[in-house]
Design a protein around this nucleic acid. Structure first.
Lengths: 325, 325
DNA sequence: TCAGATATGCTCAGAATGAGCATAGGAGAT
DNA sequence: ATCTCCTATGCTCATTCTGAGCATATCTGA
């Protein structure tokens, strides 16, 4: 079998101060130039790593000092030329990406935590519909659709943009993070589009659809695609498995819980209905103790009820009462 | 980087005559012996296959003559010794598994279609709770739990079995197919447990927990795990994406649609409520034409309404009205 | 023309959801 | 003390969604 190498990528997520953060490292682009943000990456050691996720835990520990708890496989990325070094004789690079949820926030090395909405500003609807959607994205996508070579292609692009960005009457689907990123990439709205075209020497395709500055903070290689996959997957999983609790301290107030769910799902929730849902679902249990708090009536501290796993087939936090106004 | 090889596995699904079927091939076990069922498998050609799924489509076409339509990546399997030849100097074998949904059923070569409930008899609840659960599985799992070395381990095993098989008050979660298979494997209830122990030369661990005949038809290597992953994933996806239509002819009756959903989800549904759901969701559109049928009032023929993708963020068939009696 | 089989319509109670109003219990200012 | 400002928590109410049935329509074959 010809040359192929297997790597492992980690999307390590924590939520602190209502900000969802991911762990990034700095990395020189293969073509040279200033360092970019990248997801932590490590090789699989076929001889010693019994399973893929053990391999992942091993090198995350070695590189950042972090001991991972909850870990879940995300997706395997294997397109040709994900890494431009392939065109210069490098092996085909296949990366298995993992999602990890952690509580603590102390890291070593060149690792640092970044707000993941820096990478996807259009995904944060907590303060309402992000202005960038109507200001920059919608008009540029319209131009992109109009620029397709055939009638059919124009219709397809327009429909795709409408569905994925919820532009027509369609609602916004928080889980379609990757599809949105991919459209923006194709439409030349993110810095990576331009970078990759130059890297592949296809300068003739550099007809930027937009006069807008490119959107969001770029990442090395295809790492922003991996990150988009992670965000979408996590948003989906929240609804039917109690994964949020991996991100919370053992004891928390209901508002803290709500803030973490909101940070991840990117929408604001109706407070009373959120509590009702969480309590009726049997996900939490009051401890009787109260929070040291921050002004206002003290909040009760809760813990996660592990028993819920035995009582319900698919307990999740769901997204009740998305705030309208 | 040391030796590793990348392979691609396909779980190809079709539903005909209310039976969900998967495409299998016959394959000699690496250790010799009679041929076993296996999932179609092919290598990735790093030089020529631009993406993983193109590679998959390529060799599926070459091997079976089937042209795949809907294809989705499932999971990447990379545990050491998935393939026992690794212990005799073979490379570490990492397989990326894909799920494909097709309509037609004509295949060539040694490929054949098999009812997937032959592999997972306990997953088919269409005629009510499968007898094998109470007759064989529950008691053997109880013995397996009791056989753990420590108190703690006994509790953990028991809880796990209860949650995953819905044995206590817990409901049955149709999506946990893999977790169930893995427990059965650990408990020595499937033929593969024994086979793999012998293959690894760990005959001392052959304390079968059960006097029962092993459950379900075995598959080569870890292919039944891959299949379980596919079934679970497909059951989940049904609920929020209109994937069933990939398995149906362009025009169909609501009962045909219902039968396919039931075949996959493994539960019987309340007919009237099912129609209500499907119609209210705007998933289908009547054509005015009627079915050639099979006795009884003729049924109207429907088509999938593609527009639904524009109207709703997450249209799926869901599982309304699971029949109680 | 009747029995048997499906298709399709409709009803109704109960549960879940979306939105608010109202009260409770703290901290700090006056 | 008392008032103001917060946040926590409780409760209500209209609406929609679900689970279960009953009833009627329209075929085929005896």
């Amino acid at each position: 079998m010809p040359d192929a190498a297997i790597g492992l990528n980690a999307v390590i997520v924590a939520v602190t101060e209502e900000v969802p953060r991911i762990l990034t490292v700095r990395r020189e682009p293969p073509a040279g130039g200033p360092a970019e943000d990248a997801l932590p990456f490590g090789p699989l050691e076929p001889e010693t790593d019994r399973t893929l996720d053990r391999g992942l835990r091993r090198w995350v520990r070695e590189q950042t000092g972090l001991e991972l708890g909850y870990v879940e496989q995300l997706y395997t990325f294997g397109d040709r030329n994900r890494d431009p070094r392939e065109s210069h004789g490098g092996p085909r690079l296949v990366s298995v990406a993992y999602l990890a949820l952690v509580r603590e926030v102390s890291v070593s090395g060149d690792a640092r935590w970044r707000d993941w909405y820096e990478f996807f500003p259009w995904e944060d609807w907590r303060e309402g519909r992000p202005a960038v959607l109507d200001r920059a994205i919608a008009p540029t996508l319209e131009r992109w659709a109009a620029g397709a070579t055939e009638q059919r292609g124009r219709l397809e692009r327009r429909e795709r943009a409408e569905i994925v960005f919820g532009l027509g009457g369609v609602g916004w689907d928080g889980e379609r993070v990757l599809e949105r990123y991919e459209i923006l990439y194709e439409a030349g709205l993110v810095p990576e589009s331009r970078r990759d075209l130059i890297q592949r020497g296809e300068k003739e395709n550099l007809h930027s659809e937009s006069s807008e500055p490119p959107l969001g903070r770029p990442m090395s290689l295809d790492h922003r695609r991996i990150l988009a996959t992670a965000l979408g997957r996590l948003r989906g999983k929240l609804k039917y498995r109690p994964v949020v609790f991996e991100l919370l301290p053992p004891t928390f107030t209901l508002l803290q819980l709500q803030r973490v769910v909101e940070a991840l799902s990117g929408v604001g929730l109706h407070k009373q209905n959120f509590r009702r849902l969480v309590e009726n679902a049997g996900l939490v249990e009051g401890t009787g103790r109260q929070d040291a708090e921050t002004g206002g009536r003290p909040a009760e501290l809760f813990v996660f009820r592990r028993e819920v796993l035995r009582e319900r087939p698919a307990p999740g936090v769901g997204l009740p009462g998305v705030r309208r106004g």
